[in-house]
Design a protein around this nucleic acid. Structure first.
Lengths: 191, 191
DNA sequence: TTTATAAGCCTAATATTATTAGTTTTTGGT
DNA sequence: ACCAAAAACTAATAATATTAGGCTTATAAA
């Protein structure tokens, strides 16, 4: 070949993710990113089609990381489905707190091409649905799962966007909300 | 005075909101907006400090509109707290479906200066907390409210971002999720 | 050992868009 | 008629994504 590459795609995405977490997406200029990599902005185009594709790449690894925390939570939590579900919910929230900027980017980016694609999301939540089925019953497991995901996602986003500012312990509120939902799902499903 | 103004602040914000709903925020250029108003872009600066302030203005009226649907839902729904809560939840979801772009902008804009400020949000949900207190009891009413808001907000966002794509009736799932949560809140609170 | 090739990077140029500076136009009150 | 000031305009600036075209250097073939 020729001319040893001074960077590569995974590195670009990883650094971009770090910069986004540090300064926010709106602050991410291709020139800054390139500079961080020791190259100039136009050289990035050898690795990514455009800025949108770059952000999509960041979103993709963010989802993979979230997926990993799901797996870990499933492996380390006890056998009781209720406990497993709680472990997943708390892992999800913890992840969002650890990478708030990238979490928001992955799920609420303005343009559809930048958000997480549903295929990977489905893969991520299938094991969760299996657990939910043990709580809600098979028939309502998809609907119950959707409510659960909405609950944790929405709660976390409100938190991260400073829209729950009236005091009180948010960790406790989160836990209470999740437990309430699971309790409700168990009773409503059987009625 | 002199020179009759060809536009005014409320009109600017209203048209901006319409353009955002039609084409998305990322497509909103000051030149397009100005053109729509029959003026040139720099003239906008007589009415708004900058683009961020403009978007904040749009967010503010969007929140006011959502607030109005809350009030309407409260006025038209029956006396049972459970029913009133359901009415609010469905009104909230309906609003988000009617103005998906502006709803997302109001609650998940990338920069904090553009999102809804918590003061107006507090004002909006205080009556809702009163109803929640009848369901959950006073002590847990704030936590229960937060879970409820998270649930509807998260569910709606997942819907709007096409992240609930596995079929099934989403309206039914939403209704089931909300009912489950309320049922759970009622039982967990009393335990 | 030489040399052609192509990968990978660079500089320079272009396009879009927010924003600022300075100027011109309009019109109501004197 | 004319002055003042409000409100618009044109022109210029700055930031940033993207494209075009050229230079450099390591490698593989001769």
């Amino acid at each position: 070949m020729a001319y040893p590459a001074q960077t590569d795609y995974p590195t670009i995405i990883r650094i971009a993710q770090q910069l986004i977490e540090r300064d926010g997406v709106e602050q991410l200029a291709l020139a800054s990113l390139a500079s961080e990599l020791g190259i100039k902005a136009p050289s990035l185009y050898r690795y990514v089609a455009n800025k949108t594709a770059l952000l999509k790449g960041v979103v993709t690894i963010t989802i993979q990381q979230l997926f990993a925390t799901y797996s870990e939570a499933l492996n380390t939590s006890a056998g009781d489905p209720q406990n497993q579900m709680l472990a997943i919910c708390h892992a999800h929230r913890q992840f969002a707190h650890d990478q708030p900027k990238n979490y928001a980017l992955a799920f609420t980016a303005a343009s559809a091409e930048q958000r997480a694609d549903s295929a990977s999301l489905v893969e991520m939540v299938l094991p969760v649905q299996a657990i939910m089925a043990q709580i809600s019953g098979q028939e309502h497991s998809l609907a119950a799962l959707r409510g659960m995901l909405g609950l944790i996602h929405g709660f976390v986003l409100l938190e991260l966007n400073q829209q729950l500012q009236r005091g009180g312990d948010l960790s406790t509120a989160f836990d209470l909300a999740v437990r309430s939902y699971l309790a409700g799902v168990a009773t409503v499903a059987s009625s």
